[in-house]
């Protein structure tokens, strides 16, 4: 199961607090225990600065 899109991914720090969801202007994030970024993400990176866990990162998951 891949959680990554081209240039953004959610790492294992994510606790599922859902804070990122509300700041995504594109409705690209959902979370039920862990955030998932969908393909409609435009990589604006706004969510990164609202994540308390440093869980959203640019780049591809290793």
């Amino acid at each position: 199961m891949s959680r990554c899109i081209d240039k953004m991914y959610v790492n294992s720090n994510c606790v599922g607090c859902s804070q990122c969801i509300v700041f995504c202007k594109h409705g690209a994030i959902t979370a039920r225990g862990r955030a998932v970024i969908s393909k409609i993400c435009v990589e604006c990176r706004v969510c990164i600065s609202y994540c308390p866990m440093k869980a959203i990162q640019p780049g591809r998951e290793a």
Binding site: N13, V15, G16, C17, S18, Q19, A31, G33, M53
Partner: peptide, 10 residues
Amino acid sequence: LIVQVHHGRW
């Protein structure tokens, strides 16, 4: 509306 989990460092 939303499901929020808090544990660990948050």
